[in-house]
Design a protein around this nucleic acid. Structure first.
Length: 377
DNA sequence: AACTCGTGGTG
DNA sequence: TCACCAAGAGT
């Protein structure tokens, strides 16, 4: 492996050359004190001044929701969860079905399954572990989340490394090794940078810096508290970092979704197997999603109920992380006493609210087609 | 180590 | 339209 470029000595001239990390951390915390984002899960400056610590439950809940998810998207979900389940004990006592339905639309549904299991584990032991190793053992809590909760909620000097931090650090030290190969080195540098005082604020400052200044495209280096020591900026290569290994192309998959509606408006939904894609989530029954279109036998075998199925004009299209999907939608009106082979009937609006987005699209297309048919008939 | 696992915003 | 991206974890 070639040696990593390091910050040039001249860039360090204005800081303590013996322990530059301490000066850099101080500069970042000073910036954070002036520019921190106000977020619902953060403790405000006034409360902090009064000695208040963040609520570990809120910190943990926000960190789980924020995994691979934007602040703007998380906001309303976080508010609804806190309103409905104000404590980890309340969340632990909730039916899992309710938690999954409340999570619908946020994606990565293993997070919701693990969230509920984690709440039960934490409640059973009287609260969250206060150290990184203990947190790491909880379901859905990986290296990042354990470090983040330990630092933010419990003031532990843990190395918090998320996508923002990877970007900031690979630029600061001009690390040209592509991710994820560079992760171990990034972690070492973050651990070296993390101060004993205010490690939680330091972690959040790093993420704020990455989110608002050291952005993926067109970073605002002129406003950055680390503009002087940043090696990538000095070399004019900030925007090209971090380097990443190329991703595989997305295959396209096909399937059929079945939307059956009773005279009272209820629609047929089926809870998917707990493992795998959309695990544990409820939506209209489907064929398997395959590379080739499902043949007539596969469609007939997957139909959840005997009915006169009609094809809707539109198809549901959706992009997942690693494949794209087209769902043909078949609709049917069934009798009030219909007995499906699989699944059960729930009010249409409830079904929409609890469905993951891909299946909600199919449901909406089916419901619209059924409305059109009834309008004609 | 490389895959699987969602969704919405952005340029 | 499309690739990239966002406070990653589990296997």
């Amino acid at each position: 492996m070639p040696p990593e470029p390091r910050p040039v000595e001249g860039a360090r001239a204005d800081v303590n050359a013996a322990a530059p990390e301490a000066a850099w951390a101080a500069a970042l915390l000073d910036w954070y004190d002036r520019h921190a984002r106000r977020l619902p899960w953060r403790t405000g400056p006034a409360e902090r001044a009064a000695g208040a610590r963040p609520d570990p439950y809120r910190v943990w809940l926000s960190e789980i929701m924020l995994q691979q998810t934007t602040v703007a998207t998380v906001g309303p979900y976080f508010a609804r969860f806190i309103e409905r389940w104000p404590t980890v004990e309340a969340l632990a006592a909730a039916p899992r079905e309710d938690v999954l339905a409340a999570w619908a639309g946020l994606g990565y549904y293993a997070r919701a399954r693990n969230l509920h299991a984690c709440a039960q584990a934490a409640a059973a032991r009287g609260g969250f572990p206060q150290d990184e190793a203990g947190l790491r053992e909880l379901p859905g809590v990986g290296a990042y989340t354990a470090a983040a909760v330990a630092a933010i909620a419990f003031d532990a000097p843990a190395a918090v490394v998320d996508g923002n931090v990877e970007r900031v650090v690979t630029r600061m030290f001009r690390i040209e090794t592509p991710l994820p190969d560079a992760k171990p080195l990034v972690r070492v540098e973050v651990q070296r940078l993390t101060p004993r005082r205010r490690p939680g604020d330091f972690a959040q400052a790093m993420m704020d810096l990455g989110a608002t200044i050291c952005t993926p495209r067109r970073p605002a280096c002129a406003l950055c508290p680390w503009r002087a020591p940043c090696a990538a900026r000095a070399a004019g290569v900030a925007e090209s970092l971090p380097r990443k290994k190329p991703k595989a192309a997305k295959p396209h998959r096909l399937g059929v979704a079945f939307v059956a509606q009773r005279p009272d408006g209820a629609v047929l939904v089926e809870t998917r197997p707990d493992r795998g894609l959309l695990g544990g989530m409820a939506g209209p029954p489907c064929t398997d999603w395959t590379d080739a279109p499902p043949d007539a036998a596969a469609v007939a075998a997957a139909a959840p109920i005997e009915a006169e199925w009609r094809a809707a004009a539109a198809e549901a299209r959706h992009v997942f992380t690693h494949f794209t999907l087209s769902l043909e939608v078949l609709t049917a009106r069934v009798g009030q006493g219909a007995r499906p082979a699989r699944g059960g009937f729930v009010p249409a609006e409830q079904a929409r609210a609890a469905a993951p987005t891909a299946l909600r699209k199919a449901l909406d297309i089916g419901l619209a087609a059924l409305r059109d048919v009834s309008a004609l008939g």
